[in-house]
């Protein structure tokens, strides 16, 4: 993204305007993948709203949701995509700019 980004981009973007979605994305940026159950338990969200957040992230290709066979049992893994990674990096840039502006 260009250097001209400003705070209005956060307000105008569905991803950034939701703290929960951004929180999930930032965590995934650090850990890359997580199981569905772990994510559900750690966010503490009701299933219905959790699904809606996941659906949004998945439809916009920020994450992938896939069931894989593991030694214990089939598990659903949530992974961040390259698009998602770029989106989070962009968020960091915007937040830094926003804070710099506030400190001036």
């Amino acid at each position: 993204m260009s250097e001209e980004l400003d705070f209005s981009e956060i307000v105008g973007d569905d991803l950034y305007s939701s703290g929960v979605r951004t929180g999930i994305m930032i965590a995934l940026y650090g850990i890359r993948k997580i199981t569905f159950t772990d994510l559900l338990i750690s966010t503490g969200l009701p299933r219905s709203s959790f699904y809606s957040h996941l659906k949004y992230l998945s439809e916009n290709q920020y994450i992938t949701v896939r069931t894989e066979i593991t030694l214990r049992r089939p598990l659903t893994f949530i992974r961040i995509t390259d698009t998602g990674m770029r989106k989070v990096e962009n968020y960091f840039r915007i937040i830094e700019k926003y804070r710099q502006k506030n400190n001036e």
Partner: peptide, 20 residues
Amino acid sequence: MNNEIDTTIDVSGRIIYRYV
């Protein structure tokens, strides 16, 4: 704005904490 950042930190912190 700050409320959303608080939620973001709270949610990501909880996920990472569990992971750690």
